[in-house]
Every structure is written in structure tokens, then in C-alpha cells.
Design a binder for these strands. Structure first.
Length: 371
DNA sequence: AATCGGACCAACCGCCGCGTC
DNA sequence: CGACGCGGCGGTTGGTCCGAT
């Protein structure tokens, strides 16, 4: 405390703004392999042009396997309201009681509608409007499809919320803890307020991904759509298996075979495909080759990468490219991909298929997403 | 069809607390 | 014991989307 605050990173050398799919993938892959022991060092080790804080934030708020996406269920909202009553703006504490929810997300929900809802209630002590109905619904008639997500297993919720009457709908709900990647069926629950449940929320479930939920942004943002195709959960279902292992720093390589930082070309290819990617600092500059050798699996990865690229090219119809050489084929594939991508304004989307990652093209426009 | 304003959310910023040296 | 580094937290902002006009 009271110490001069050192900047977390050199802002001039890091990329800022929205994360690209390639960056997400790189971060995910790196953390899968190595965990996130040191956030500050992570960007350099992974080759990301981001500050460690940004990586951490991205991971915690979005990429983490157990992060839950989508609309908050009425039960969750009720819990937030109650916890906020006692804890105030301690978003992280509140988040700790809502499994899969991040403080940032809770904060957003609070600031966007919960706060308004409460002020409406306060303004009108005898509400007869929608707010009242909504609140009644929330407590009295949870839809069978709207499984509560609250981690009621957190027994200390009642310690911290000591003044909870215990008569509320929340406390009456069974401690039903769901799998982190379970589809959030409540999104389309009839109990949801229409204004907060976009119709597209439901339709997105047709993606076949658990990332089906929710918010408008989830539906329309390219990276979200991309991730829905990951076959990941959470947003990234990558994981349940993967990240259980990651947390223990032991990831079996057969789980996901996305070429990691050992192949700069791969990441460059991805980065090139991302039109928004800044090219101020090259990966090569930031990432020292010696680091890649530390991983000791370079050769294996090259083979895997080669195989991966072959599949990729097959997937993309880029047949005819020889893949015997490690560099040129990749480069050719990348160049073709870049050309095609730029032409079609498409972005490479990865899929994980039985341990083999490959990419499929996907339409960035929501209009093209009616699968 | 175009414009505008609100809603929403991801990401950034700066401060704080804790652990380590 | 103080300086430093790092992670975490909460507030705020900027961008995007959508509905209303």
C-alpha cells in the first residue's frame, strides 16, 4: 500500500480492445498446457501481445471452462439482490456464491437491470406493474426448465447473509448444483421477462453448443459464435476434462491438439486471419525462440501441427497442397487461408474433434448462422 | 430507410492487499 | 521493516446492437 504503482505493463507494446478468436485460442491453449502461475509472464510466454492483467481478466471473465454464460436465472438474480443487500458492491464475494458467474458479469447485471428493478420497487411500494409480477414469478413459480444455478452448496451463504429470513424463494430451492457446462435451459423459460430474453437466445441453442444461451451479445459477437463452434463448453466446453487437468498442471496431450506456441507460423496464421489484429509488434519479436524449446515437445507438435494443417486444408478444400515440408505447407495454407478469409470475410473457427483440432469456416454474420 | 437513444457487455483503469525479498 | 511485485477488486468506459421514431 501507498507504494508507487508500477504500471502492469508497457501499454504501448500491448494490444488492447476486444480479444480476437486467435488470441482466445492462444490463451486457452497456453493455459491448458501450462496453467497460469504468473499472469505477468504469461503474455510473453504464450506470445500474446496483451498485458497480463488483460489475459487474466479475459480468462476469468470469459474463457474459464466453468464460467457460465447467458442470462441470469430469476433465482440467481434474487440471490444477487439479497447478497448485495448485505455485502454491498462486493462483487467478487457475491460471485463466489453464484457458481460459474463472474464478478464482472454480476456487476453488469446489477448495474443494468437489478438496480433499476429495485429502484422501481422502492419508488412504488405497492407495485402492480410488471416489476411486481416479475418478482413474484421469480419467487413463486420457477419454471421446471429453469434450473437454479446457484451454488447452494456454499453453506456460508447463510452465514454471510445472516439476516436472510430463510423464507425466501432462494433458500427454499434445493441445493441442486449443476454441471458447469450444462445448457442453461432457463434462458427460454417462460418466467423470463421478455425484454431481457432475446428471441435469438433460444435459437442459438441450435448450435448444439452449451454456449447457446443468452445475451444478445453472445449471439452476435463473432468470438462468441466462434466459441460456440469450439465444442467447448462454458463458453468453452473445452473443458471440463481439459481444465480439470489444467488446474493440476497436468494436461494430457491427447485431449486437445492445438499447436501451441512452438509453432509461430500457426499463430501468425491465426493472427493474420484476424483483421483486427494489430501488427505493431511481431510475434517473433515478443516471443523468443528459446522459450519454445523449453516445451520439449516441439517435434511432436510439429507432426501434430502438420496433421492438423492437413485436416484443416481438407476441411477448407485447400487440396493439392503438399504437406511434407513443415514450413512451406503451413505457409501456403496460411496464405490461402488468409486470401480466402479476406475475400469472404470469414474467420477461422476451431473445433475440437476427438483430440484433434481443426478449423472450419464460419460465417461471422448472425444472418448466416441459422444452422 | 435513416437516425437516435437506450441497453448491454467486454474490457480497461487505478487502487488495494498480500506475499516475498 | 520497508520496498517491491503481483493478483484481485470495483468503478468506469467504449463499442455494439436493437428497438423506437
Amino acid at each position: 500500500m501507498g507504494r508507487g504503482r508500477a504500471p502492469c505493463c508497457d501499454k504501448s507494446k500491448v494490444k488492447r480492445g476486444p480479444w480476437s478468436p486467435a488470441e482466445d485460442l492462444r490463451l486457452i491453449t497456453f493455459i491448458q498446457k501450462h496453467g497460469h502461475g504468473n499472469w505477468r509472464a504469461l503474455p510473453k510466454q504464450s506470445g500474446l501481445l496483451r498485458c497480463g492483467k488483460s489475459c487474466r481478466l479475459r480468462w476469468i471473465n470469459y474463457l474459464r471452462p466453468d464460467v457460465k454464460r447467458g442470462n441470469f436465472s430469476p433465482e440467481e438474480e434474487e440471490t444477487i439482490i439479497k447478497l448485495h443487500k448485505t455485502l454491498g458492491n462486493k462483487w467478487s464475494k457475491i460471485a463466489s456464491h453464484l457458481s460459474g458467474r463472474t464478478d464482472n458479469e454480476i456487476k453488469n447485471v446489477w448495474n443494468t437491470h437489478l438496480k433499476k428493478r429495485l429502484t422501481m420497487k422502492d419508488a412504488d411500494q405497492s407495485p402492480t406493474d410488471e416489476a411486481k409480477e416479475a418478482s413474484i414469478k421469480e419467487c413463486s413459480s420457477p419454471s421446471p426448465s429453469s434450473t437454479p444455478f446457484i451454488s447452494y452448496g456454499d453453506q456460508n451463504i447463510e452465514k454471510e447473509v445472516g439476516n436472510q429470513e430463510g423464507e425466501d424463494c432462494v433458500s427454499k430451492r434445493p441445493p441442486e448444483k449443476q454441471e458447469p457446462t450444462t445448457v442453461i435451459s432457463g434462458q427460454c423459460s417462460p418466467t423470463d421477462e421478455p425484454k431481457e430474453t432475446s428471441s435469438s437466445s433460444c435459437s442459438m441453442s441450435s448450435y448444439g453448443s452449451n454456449f447457446s444461451n443468452s445475451s444478445r451479445a453472445d449471439v452476435t459477437r463473432p468470438q462468441d459464435e466462434m466459441m460456440s463452434l469450439f465444442n467447448f463448453g462454458g463458453p468453452y466446453e473445452v473443458h471440463n476434462a481439459l481444465f480439470e487437468a489444467t488446474d493440476h498442471q497436468e494436461v494430457s496431450d491427447d485431449l486437445i491438439e492445438i499447436p501451441l506456441e512452438s509453432d509461430i507460423n500457426f499463430w501468425d496464421m491465426l493472427d493474420n486471419l484476424d483483421s483486427s489484429q494489430s501488427s505493431e509488434v511481431t510475434q517473433q519479436q515478443e516471443f523468443e525462440p528459446s522459450q519454445s524449446s523449453n516445451f520439449g515437445e516441439k517435434h511432436i507438435k510439429e507432426v501434430e501441427c502438420s496433421q492438423w494443417l492437413r485436416d484443416l486444408e481438407n476441411e477448407l478444400g485447400l487440396v493439392g497442397t503438399t504437406c511434407e515440408d513443415q514450413d512451406d505447407p503451413q505457409k501456403n495454407a496460411a496464405e490461402q487461408l488468409v486470401a480466402e478469409t479476406q475475400r469472404d470475410e470469414m474467420i477461422l473457427m476451431p473445433e475440437i474433434d476427438q483430440g484433434m483440432a481443426y478449423f472450419s469456416m464460419w460465417p461471422p454474420s448472425p444472418h448466416n448462422c441459422d444452422i
